[in-house]
Computed example of a mutant assay.
Amino acid sequence: MRKIIQLALIVLCSIMFSSCFETVEEINLNSDGSGRMILTLNVSQSKAKVASLMKLKTVNGYKVPSQQEIVAELNKTAAALRNMPGISNVKTTNDFSNYIFTVSFDFKEVSNINTASTKILQQYKIPAYNIARYQYNKAAKTFIKTYQLNPETKKQYMDLKQEDKEVFKNALYTSVYRFDAPVKAQTNKEAKLSGSKKAVMFRTAITNIVNYGTSVNNTIILQ
């Protein structure tokens, strides 16, 4: 039941039993369609609670991973990404003092993100409908993100035990897209444009997406 955490962060999010975390998706896009993607799971606001939970074997019936197991999952994802066409400069970070984890990589073109995401979801046996899609039209200078909430995702969330739903109580999803050129127009009214007009940020509670269908979609037209 996860769409928000791309790639390995899907796994990390599901095992960090804290009601306060943020997932951040960043894309730095060049005018030729290449760029870099950074995916972050930030549990720093609940680091004391997580540190205590990490000492347990299970929580709510789920196995609590060791630091070594978390690093192994990050490395597994990084290894898979390195074998994908159009993907390079793959890096991971793990900060167990603040519980902040990242996976980042360069892509030759935006479509490489879609291929990479699909293969990683397959690796973790996560249904493909839990994935966002990205497009970039160089001629029209238009970047598009689309995601349609699948009814099965909401059903799986509603079927969770109340204590498991608490994991998502104050959880946030943030996206930040940066460009070489200023933004001329965008379609998501909830997204904020930076002062330089070269970056767009969107933030919402994860429960808003699952419960109320808050749209993370955006079509961004550059000058």
Results as ranks from 00 to 15, higher is better:
162 Q>W: 15
21 F>M: 07
49 K>M: 14
125 K>N: 09
46 S>A: 04
109 E>N: 13
48 A>D: 11
193 L>F: 10
23 T>L: 04
134 Y>I: 03
117 S>R: 07
198 K>V: 01
149 L>D: 14
203 R>L: 03
26 E>K: 13
201 M>G: 03
197 K>Q: 10
30 N>H: 09
70 I>Q: 04
41 L>F: 11
163 E>V: 03
2 R>V: 14
11 V>W: 14
169 K>D: 02
75 N>G: 08
162 Q>D: 15
94 N>Y: 15
154 K>A: 09
67 Q>C: 12
201 M>H: 13
30 N>Q: 15
151 P>G: 06
189 K>A: 12
120 I>D: 04
112 N>L: 08
218 N>T: 01
174 T>A: 10
199 A>L: 02
12 L>F: 02
137 N>K: 03
62 Y>T: 08
53 L>S: 05
160 L>S: 05
203 R>A: 06
28 N>A: 08
152 E>A: 15
29 L>E: 04
160 L>F: 15
213 G>D: 01
196 S>A: 12
216 V>M: 03
99 Y>M: 04
187 T>Q: 05
9 L>F: 05
161 K>P: 07
151 P>T: 09
20 C>D: 15
120 I>F: 07
188 N>C: 00
100 I>M: 06
72 A>I: 05
213 G>H: 09
188 N>S: 01
134 Y>S: 10
163 E>Q: 11
106 D>C: 13
174 T>F: 09
118 T>L: 14
178 R>T: 07
205 A>I: 06
36 R>A: 09
208 N>M: 02
123 Q>C: 07
184 K>S: 05
89 N>D: 12
156 Q>V: 04
119 K>C: 07
8 A>S: 10
149 L>T: 12
4 I>V: 09
135 Q>D: 13
105 F>V: 05
154 K>Q: 11
93 T>I: 06
129 Y>D: 04
186 Q>H: 13
71 V>W: 10
92 T>F: 00
150 N>F: 07
4 I>L: 12
154 K>V: 04
43 V>I: 08
54 M>C: 00
41 L>G: 14
142 T>Y: 11
134 Y>K: 09
104 S>I: 00
21 F>P: 05
13 C>N: 13
52 S>G: 05
215 S>D: 02
150 N>H: 14
73 E>L: 13
76 K>P: 10
73 E>N: 12
16 M>H: 15
114 N>Q: 01
86 G>E: 05
156 Q>P: 13
212 Y>Q: 06
77 T>M: 12
155 K>N: 06
49 K>Q: 11
170 N>Q: 03
223 Q>A: 15
197 K>T: 01
127 P>K: 03
130 N>M: 02
202 F>P: 07
17 F>C: 09
182 P>N: 00
13 C>Y: 15
145 K>Y: 15
98 N>K: 08
53 L>Y: 10
60 N>C: 14
221 I>P: 10
64 V>L: 03
133 R>Y: 14
104 S>F: 07
138 K>I: 09
183 V>W: 03
59 V>P: 12
214 T>E: 05
200 V>I: 07
36 R>I: 11
17 F>K: 08
21 F>K: 00
35 G>L: 03
117 S>E: 15
188 N>P: 05
84 M>G: 00
45 Q>K: 10
60 N>M: 14
173 Y>M: 06
219 T>P: 04
187 T>V: 04
146 T>W: 08
43 V>M: 14
16 M>Y: 14
94 N>I: 06
150 N>V: 02
116 A>Y: 04
186 Q>A: 12
166 E>K: 08
217 N>A: 01
153 T>S: 12
